[in-house]
Amino acid sequence: MNLNKLADFQRKNYGLVIILAIIFTAFMLVGASKIYMQSDITKEWPQDLEIMEVQDQINNLYGVGDSVLITLRLDPDFNIENRINDIRDPYVIQSLMLFEEILEDESAVDSVTSASMFFENKPIYTTEMVKMHMDQSPASYRFFNDDYSATLMIVSASIGKDITKIKKIIDRFEENKDETFLPPGVEIHVTGMPFILNVILTFLQQDAVFTTALAALIILLLLFLMERSFSKGFIIFIPLTLGLVWTLGTLGWLNIPISVATVGVGAMILGLGVEYGVFVVSRYAEERKKHKQDKALQISVSEVGSSILGSGLTTIVGFSALTLSVMPMMQHLGQSLALGIFFSLVAALVVNPAFIIFEEDLEKKLITKAKKRIILKEKEVASRK
């Protein structure tokens, strides 16, 4: 790459460079809108390992689903007269049986196991009758805790780790809770790996946005302090954010998902890529004190450009090595970071100089206009005298 020619082109056609960068960014924003969170973490594991294939075969042969645990529990803070003190109360058992019937009608539910199977077609008008049936079926005791304040229901559901299916089944559980006509003072609590996974993925998505936004804010403030100029801080920061958008857009267009491993990639790209823009802008400021605009830009782009190209390419190679990992999540991390460094380099070498010249020329024009206004005002004052 002839960096001197690149610098000359940027100085003469900085407006074109900026317009092309904006158009490319718009295209990448469309790609970024296609990016998604990989909710099924099993897809981030090696799929061709024998142990994974055996697991899939067992699931298919025996219909092994994901366990959802539901407990009906007495609320210890619920204090009214004649409240239920024993989870074996016949009203609770009837609600349990009704809840099981409702769940079994759900398409995603494979089976439901609870204490209600020990009371089917049996009279349960009083708590004593419930106890009698339990004594006749000792296995029923394993569904109750020691002080009989809670009972357990195990639901096998074919929802896998797909976040969409998990959210649907969660919504249905919430709806079904209202249809069970639970007596006052009895609560339903739902847990299990699908629900835990849903919470974790929700936190990861929130953290991805928060950490990227926080990193961007801190980096921008530091740039203002280091450069002692808002305009120069933005000159470095805007191309940096363009590099991040281009990275996310490329991930979207290539259908590379955000996973557990890559959820913090936005903050990492901003932190790793900011130095390239800082080097270019700082070197130009030094050279501009000694040379004219064209010469200063040539020296900055050619000398700093060759240095950051070498640094950036070695970093890209290092991250690209992760794509040889057997773990898909590590492959995606390597791809994301390699793309991020590549686009940060492109933004620093191509877009940063264009913004530098744009800002300098704009500042000159504004200063010239301000001087003309001052001269005109002075002439007006002089003519009045």
Rank of each mutant, 00 (worst) to 15 (best):
Y141H: 13
V199F: 06
P194S: 10
G243E: 01
K295A: 11
L322W: 03
V351N: 00
G63K: 12
K232E: 02
S140Q: 01
L214K: 05
D178G: 11
K377N: 13
I200W: 02
Q335V: 09
E359W: 00
G185P: 06
M129A: 13
E174S: 13
T323A: 04
F234N: 00
L20T: 11
L98S: 11
L98F: 08
T151M: 10
I51N: 08
W45G: 04
V281S: 06
A370F: 10
E128H: 14
T126M: 01
R283L: 02
E44H: 06
G273R: 00
G264Q: 04
E106K: 15
Q55I: 11
D86V: 13
L270R: 08
L29E: 00
N121A: 12
S33W: 06
S107N: 11
L322F: 10
K161P: 01
F181W: 06
S33Y: 08
G271Q: 04
G312M: 05
E120I: 15
E275F: 05
Q335H: 07
V17S: 07
S137W: 10
M37E: 02
V326N: 09
V350L: 12
T250W: 05
Q206E: 14
K177I: 12
E44I: 11
Q38G: 02
I19D: 01
I188Y: 02
G192Q: 05
A321S: 14
I169W: 00
D146W: 14
L222R: 08
F27W: 11
I51D: 06
M28P: 05
N255I: 07
I23E: 03
R172N: 11
A215Q: 04
F210H: 10
L297C: 01
Y62D: 06
M52T: 13
G233R: 07
S300R: 08
E81N: 14
L225C: 14
I163D: 03
T202M: 05
R283Y: 10
T164E: 09
G185C: 10
D105G: 14
P46I: 07
L223Y: 09
L272S: 07
K34A: 06
F24R: 04
F230G: 04
F230N: 01
D40K: 12
A348C: 09
G305V: 07
K122Q: 11
L222Q: 02
N198A: 13
F24E: 01
S116P: 03
V317P: 05
